[in-house]
Design a protein around this nucleic acid. Sequence first.
DNA 1: GTCTATACAATGATAGAC
DNA 2: GTCTATCATTGTATAGAC
Lengths: 219, 219
Amino acid sequence: MTEPTTCDRILDAAEALFAEQGFHPASLRQITQAAGVNLAAVHYHFGSKQALLLAVFRRRLDALNQARLARLEEALAKADGARLEDVLDAFVYPALAFSRGSDADGHRFMQLLMRAFADRDEDLHAAISSEYAFVMRRFADAIAQTLPGRDPELLRRQLDFTVGALTYTMAESSLADTRSIASDLVRFAAAGLRGSGQRAASHDSTVQTGARSTLETSS
Amino acid sequence: MTEPTTCDRILDAAEALFAEQGFHPASLRQITQAAGVNLAAVHYHFGSKQALLLAVFRRRLDALNQARLARLEEALAKADGARLEDVLDAFVYPALAFSRGSDADGHRFMQLLMRAFADRDEDLHAAISSEYAFVMRRFADAIAQTLPGRDPELLRRQLDFTVGALTYTMAESSLADTRSIASDLVRFAAAGLRGSGQRAASHDSTVQTGARSTLETSS
DNA sequence: GTCTATACAATGATAGAC
DNA sequence: GTCTATCATTGTATAGAC
């Protein structure tokens, strides 16, 4: 059992090579050679190259989503209710840490994820979305609770803005401090959410201070 | 002159097929057949499949950037100086209109553009960035003028957030009203920019240790 | 059930004739 | 400039060994 199974060896090699070169450029012959298995093993265990990519995604996204939900639970468990910043941080920080953390492949994997999001392939898109759907709903609900009376349609749109800002930032190659980026993004999104509560209102609404650190809970 | 040149016919066919299927899946044989030219003509006129993609990008981005700059000039020409919202709108609206406008291929092209941004290919990324560099600088300067005293590094980061929100939104398949989306995004970004003028003072990392371990141990 | 060897159609690219 | 012929490599499929 100390020896990794053929399936796992393929998944590991595929993840590294997909992340490094992209989906199409990374060939199955490269992958199977790096994994030390036969070419046909991919189709036996996964069915196709694309199904292999999907399996790679699932393995990683499970971990990311669990980390997000754990942090969200922390925020929601607070006595006086969750703050908007804490909910946003639970969504943003694990992704950024994942993409820039100790794992050197994390960043590349996140770039691969963003590419998959941008990709036109509908099967892949649907599979990833379904993987995300439950988590997104949890966060949308939590955010809606901190912004009572918000138009749900507008809120969904603003959440898309936030996801876009996060995704784009993850794909950036700059390697600035994760905590600093997460903090800036949380404050940007919180101000954006609070500052445009209703449509077509006056532009120069009161500026939110919102300067509290998202970390102050433990200090 | 009524007959399009070989170059143009290749560009038109390539744009349509790249946008429809993605870069790698669209084959040169498909493209050249649709264009009614020989397969080898692509390599003669452009050098490679990727160089062809780049040429397709350049043709479109020139038009988009000109539209943006024209709108920016309008905003800057106002007697009492440009408002932040007007500058943001000059950046956001042409892109959204371009991706959802009368041209049915516009949306698909924007998805292709987002995919290119997410792509790992450094040559392509550098080429697109250089295409954008001048325009981005103009807008960054204009925005900085409406937010005097802002830390330039933070401003750059916040602009990336905005670009990410815009790019992600453009790739969305929903077809809501362009003007409405642009307006929402402008107000979101303006509030995010105004509402987080200075960074959070403390970047201590006490609270994240718990969640980070959760992230790293689960997989 | 697992894994291997091999074959196949299609791809991007190139060289050289016209 | 344009075209034909050709090459190595790709994802995929199948037949057969343990």
